[in-house]
């Protein structure tokens, strides 16, 4: 393994920051928000795998697999929600859905 842990962590931090910015900025589309979340999750997964490699323990890789399974479930559910939201208000703008306030 030539890639040192520090490089992996820097890459993961950049990815996480990109995902976060995507989530915060692109508010006119719920789907972009979901993609941002996916990127952040992948960044976390990268940290797990890198750590697992660095310390020679398999736990991190197992955890990465678990996160994959969880995200696939989450995405399928979230996309169904998006379809439902679109059907209700004919838009996918995040700020249109503010009924929780009252």
């Amino acid at each position: 393994m030539i890639v040192p842990l520090a490089h992996v962590l820097v890459l993961a931090a950049i990815l996480f920051g990109l995902g976060l910015v995507c989530t915060l900025v692109w508010r006119s589309n719920v789907i972009m928000l979901l993609i941002g979340i996916e990127i952040m999750l992948n960044a976390a997964m990268l940290v797990f795998v890198g750590g697992s490699n660095h310390w020679g323990a398999a736990d991190g890789q197992v955890f990465a697999l678990v996160i994959m399974a969880m995200t696939s479930a989450e995405v399928s559910l979230a996309l169904a929600l998006v379809v439902y939201l679109h059907r209700r208000k004919n838009t996918v703008d995040v700020d249109e859905f503010r009924e929780l306030r009252d």
Partner: peptide, 17 residues
């Protein structure tokens, strides 16, 4: 508490970040 907030998802997200 709900009546104090704006109820906008993006704002909540920003607050969280």
């Amino acid at each position: 508490i709900g009546s104090r907030g704006q109820g906008r998802v993006s704002l909540s997200l920003l607050g969280m970040a």
